[in-house]
Design a protein around this nucleic acid. Structure first.
Length: 208
DNA sequence: CATGGGATTGACT
DNA sequence: GTCAATCCCATGC
């Protein structure tokens, strides 16, 4: 079965070269895809080297080199020693900025997602489609595992590689978006730099 | 070279 | 509601 990417095109470097807040908002409704699974992006957060919650705030190091690199590259890092979190590097080369992808609505390859997430529909029947979609892809660690994204994807080109981001398509041309403060950080906690698709089941923590 | 802190999740009380 | 898992890497001695 062909992935349901009708009406969408792969985004190139120019899309990501813009201000990180603009990109974070416009990524809502786009599709994050690998070779065998994909989901519509419904939650993002922006990070920028000018504020202390961003890894790049410490300056150029081995870890942050990806963030300061050219736009349109994936920044994947390990969180809490356990999870791989996926970002899209933004702004011109030399600026450390990226958009963290925090929630997807699964649209292709759900069975492969469930296998990688170790969700067995026979022994663990979902209470609802909504609950199943959330278990697969609501949250940055979950969606990475569902799509099979690992640290080896760090630095890969979104315009050319196995990982890709596709433009908005049918039903998602103008999604209703709400902003909120970012999750799970201890610095710069007040910035409203989180973007959520209103009423999507797969937003990890719905705004109040 | 030793230490400490996470852009989280799932199991458990 | 609490809490441990687990590892990369920035920092400081």
């Amino acid at each position: 079965m062909a992935p349901p990417f009708i009406g969408r095109r792969r985004l190139g470097r120019a899309f990501f070269a813009r201000p990180v807040l603009t990109v974070a908002a416009e990524l809502i409704g786009c599709v994050l895809a690998t070779g065998d699974a994909a989901g519509v992006i419904v939650e993002t957060e922006a990070y920028h080297d000018s504020e202390p919650a961003c890894h790049a705030h410490v300056g150029l190091t081995a870890r942050t080199a990806t963030l300061f690199g050219p736009p349109g590259i994936a920044y994947v890092y390990r969180s809490y020693g356990v999870h791989a979190l996926v970002n899209a590097v933004c702004e011109p080369e030399g600026v450390g900025a990226a958009v963290l992808i925090r929630g997807l609505e699964p649209v292709w390859g759900q069975e492969r997602m469930a296998l990688r997430r170790r969700i067995d529909s026979l022994t663990m029947p979902p209470r609802s489609d909504r609950a199943h979609a959330r278990a697969l892809c609501a949250g940055p660690g979950r969606l990475s595992q569902a799509l099979g994204i690992t640290l080896t994807d760090n630095g890969s080109e979104l315009s050319r590689g196995r990982l890709s981001i596709l433009s908005r398509g049918p039903g998602w041309e103008e999604p209703e978006i709400t902003t909120a403060t970012r999750i799970g950080i201890t610095k710069a906690v007040g910035l409203p730099w989180r973007f959520c698709a209103v009423q999507s089941a797969c937003v990890s923590v719905p705004p109040r």
